[in-house]
Every structure is written in C-alpha cells, then in structure tokens.
Nucleic acid binder design. Structure first.
Lengths: 189, 189
DNA sequence: CGCGACGTTGATTTGCCTCAACGATTGTGG
DNA sequence: CCACAATCGTTGAGGCAAATCAACGTCGCG
C-alpha cells in the first residue's frame, strides 16, 4: 500500500497519520488475467490504482471486435469517467491484461476521503491534469502520424511495455488492424 | 466576470467575498478573430476561460496544413497542458476563431489563488474530470465511427456551433479533409 | 473592384482493412 | 504427459474509404 502513498507524495505533502487515513479508504483487490472489472451495461462507480500488473479499458465495436482505448500499468489510475459522473450504464469494459493487484475506491468512499482530507483534491487534480496533457499529445499523434509511425513511436517510447502485451491489443490501441501490425513488423509495408 | 463565478458555483460553494478574491486573480482580455494567443516554440503559462467567442487549439503538420485538436466556446477552458506542466516549448497554436473575450490566469497566479482558496482545487479537479470523460468518449468515437458518421454525429450534437465555424476547421477537428467534408454534405459519398 | 479566403467537384491514388488460410505457441483436461 | 484446442501471429489477394491533386465557383471585405 506504500506504493500509493509514495505516488501521492510526488504531488502533495502527506504526514504518516494522513497516509494511514488515505489507506483506510482503499480496498486491496486481485484480478486474474482476462477477468473483467467492468462490463458494458453496468454502472461504473469505482476508480482503480494499479499496484502490479496491467489493466485495459476497451469497447466491443459493431463488428464484434475489441478496441483498446487505454492501458493502465503500475502507478496509473483507470476508470470510466463518463459513467462515473453521469451514473449511466457504461459502454466500456475494463479487464486485467495480466494477473493484477489494484487498490479500489468507490465514488462515495472517495467523496468521504476528500471531505476528511481536502488536500487530496489537489492530488487528484494534478493526476487528471497530467492525464489530460497526455491526451492532448495522443490526439496530436493520432492526427499526424501514419499507422507505421505510430507503431515505431510507441515502441520507442515504451519498449518494455510492448513486450508485456499481445500485439493485437497494441494494434487496436494504436488504431489499426492486427494484420497490418504484422506487416509493419515484418517490414512489408 | 460573473460568468466565471456562475460557472464555478455549479461545482463548489463560493460566497461573495470568495468570489471577489477569485476574480481579482484573473485578467480580462479581448482577441480579434484570427489572432494568436499561443504559437509554436513559445512557452505556455496561461489558462484561458472563454467568456464570449471561440478559441481553438491546433497544430501545423509536416505538409503545412492546420489540424484543429480542440475548440473552446463560452464557459470552456483551454490551454496546452503539456507545455504548462513541463515548461517546455509548445508544438501548438491557440487562436481566436471569432472575436473573443476571455479570462486569463498565469500558472503562478493560479498557484497563489489555490493557496489562498484551497477549495478551488476541487473546482479545477471537477472541470478536468469532466474534460477527461469527454476525451474518453471522443477516442471511442474516433475509433469506431467512419468520417461520415463522425460528421453527422457532431452535427447532431452541436448544430448551432457547426454554423459558427468554417467547414475546413471542423473537418480537421473530425480528422478528415475539407474536400471530403464537401462530399459528405453534398451526399456524394 | 479585385483579391484572398472558403467551398465544391471529379479523377486518380493510396493506406489500410477485410477475408481466408495457414504456422506457432500456449494451456488444459483426460 | 500427451493430444487437442484455443489463442496468437503471419501472409497474400483483393477491395474500399478517404486522401490528394487540380481546377473552378463564390462570397465577403479592404
């Protein structure tokens, strides 16, 4: 659980008593590879912080194919913010890509934590700001790079992560087909 | 300036004294249509809240074409979060699409405001959470819809806004060419 | 009035998808 | 521990959505 505290302390000051309070609001959970933490049609009321392993958020499109919209590895947060805010059914799935250990917090628990320790508002603000910055860059690359460029760019940015996940998941995250990914890797394009 | 206060009060409670403090940290600015608030290579240290008009964030790609990544109309915030956080030169442009009136706040001013009124952390957290929810949906639609579907979907969602902006800007925002947009509108596709 | 910004149209090209078939690897129950 | 089935990755042929290019119409504005 120290892992979350260490992460929070990169953004705000937290003494040990406060750290203990924070921890008390979270639930430690383990998920086996391929198990679902959220599925289409249900309500999303939980935010997850990944301690170990990897989660992904994906949809199933009209043709029945999965498309990965986000990954979350160690020290990343993941949830469906739209369902969380509107309390309407989600269109997304969240799945464990590897056997994973996470910290989970429900919306109502989070609200209580924020009332108890208002300084945590700042932590979550800064996390979201960082995520949003990454989003602006992602849109930029999606809009300017070809499929091949996106692959090389990502591979260069996250070489060790690319090794951890199936290629078809990365292909769908980068928004092209698994077959095309094969051709890029083989240099046949 | 009431406009910002009204917006903030949709998210947090603010008495009149606090509202006055908030306002004192902002600068009111006007920009003529087509003028630049930020250009590539410079540092971004300001966040803008649109009172009236419309701003957009765009890049110029390798071929010299503009691609719009974001719009901001009344009551929306806009900035380059990556440059803001890293204090590295931006790759983006921010431009007034119409004659626009905005409230501007620099990073260091914002920090001082947040120290003075920590409850504003919550406001910005909620704004960012809302933006991030919208981002997750945008990626979903970019990944699942064809160009034509994206056009009709957006047109249906924001019919009055579509009237306000040149078609080529909307085309680049929806990630297809201006010529293709013409063909969609003419039903020739 | 004339020029630049914006929009349209058609011909051609291309990046990537789809489909189908086939290896390789992994995992699992008998 | 093997057999067999999933799962994952590869390859090639053919097709399509959208880009590109070029030319031309139109409007608004200085």
């Amino acid at each position: 659980m120290d892992q979350l505290i260490t992460h929070i302390r990169k953004f705000i000051v937290l003494d040990d008593a406060e750290a203990a309070i924070v921890i008390s609001f979270f639930k430690n959970e383990n998920f086996k590879k391929k198990s679902l933490l959220l599925h289409e049609g249900s309500l999303c009321s939980t935010q997850y912080f990944v301690l170990k392993g990897c989660l992904r958020l994906y949809i199933i499109n009209e043709k029945g194919n999965e498309q990965t919209l986000q990954f979350a590895i160690e020290n990343w947060w993941i949830t469906d913010y739209m369902s969380l805010q509107t309390q309407r059914p989600t269109h997304f799935y969240i799945q464990a890509v590897e056997n994973s250990e996470v910290l989970a917090i429900d919306t109502d628990h989070l609200e209580k934590l924020l009332v108890r320790l208002p300084k945590m508002e700042r932590y979550f603000r800064l996390i979201l700001q960082k995520s949003f910055a990454a989003y602006q860059m992602r849109i930029k690359y999606l809009y300017t790079q070809s499929a091949e460029e996106r692959y090389h760019f990502f591979n260069n940015l996250q070489p060790e992560f690319v090794q951890r996940i199936p290629q078809y998941m990365l292909a769908s995250y980068l928004d092209f087909s698994a077959e095309f990914m094969s051709k890029i890797r083989a240099g046949k394009v």
